[in-house]
């Protein structure tokens, strides 16, 4: 589903974030990406969504070479991905409901159908009762869950999460991990980055560990 081959990423200014990364993630697999902050986790996720492009090597998503995609094809790649951003990127000029509605509007969903889908997604993350609230009034954990709802409303085959448990206390973090596991059970491919190893101790899931731009 996702395949990296000898991927190098150097930022303007010379900082080398990734140095020759290669790995494969199969369809339906759930993988954790760990490492200290600055190890290149965010860069790796950005390469998958073509927010950044590799300097060399190839990034394949669904056997499409993402690094070589034209600007016009980019939106259609991203519609197949659900992305949970480290900084949430929620919109505070609209309600919780409308935040989750946005991906469906972008894809041109029918009005009635999209209402159902938004409520289903909000229900999944336990925010159904707060659909009319402005996200500014939500707690950190709730915002994180809202971000998840927006990422899954489109029912993407691949879910990318950048530090989803970043600033949350252990109880919240466990809650969010439980949500991810339920997606895994229905066949979604997940790649979750975290610097917080404690949340994974019990799980037997695969781990990719980055250190200074190299896979351990």
């Amino acid at each position: 589903m996702i395949s990296f081959t000898q991927v190098h990423k150097r930022y303007p200014g010379g900082y080398e974030a990734l140095k020759g990364i290669s790995f494969d993630i199969a369809e339906g697999e759930m993988v954790f990406l760990t490492g200290h902050s600055g190890a290149g986790k965010s860069t790796l996720l950005k390469l998958i969504a073509a927010i950044e492009r590799p300097n060399s090597g190839s990034v394949l998503v669904n056997s499409q070479n993402v690094g070589a995609l034209s600007g016009g094809a980019l939106p259609y790649l991203r519609r197949n991905l659900g992305i949970i951003f480290q900084d949430h990127k929620l919109l505070f000029d609209r309600s919780v409901f409308d935040n989750v509605l946005l991906p469906l509007q972008i894809c041109g969903f029918d009005h009635r159908e999209s209402g159902k889908r938004v409520r289903a997604a909000l229900d999944k993350v336990g925010l159904l009762k707060r659909e009319k609230t402005n996200p500014i009034a939500l707690s950190g954990g709730e915002r994180q869950r809202l971000c998840i709802a927006r990422a899954i409303v489109n029912r993407p085959a691949i879910l990318l999460a950048d530090e989803p448990t970043g600033n949350l206390d252990a109880a919240y973090a466990q809650e969010i991990m439980a949500i991810f596991k339920s997606f895994h059970q229905v066949g979604v491919t997940l790649l979750i980055s975290t610097h917080d190893v404690s949340v994974l101790q019990d799980s037997g899931v695969r781990r990719l560990t980055l250190k200074e731009g190299v896979l351990q």
Binding site: L81, I83, K89, L102, I106
Partner: peptide, 11 residues
């Protein structure tokens, strides 16, 4: 945000 979640330029 729209760009990140797959909005075309036309949209």
């Amino acid at each position: 945000v729209s760009r990140l979640i797959g909005a075309t330029d036309g949209f």
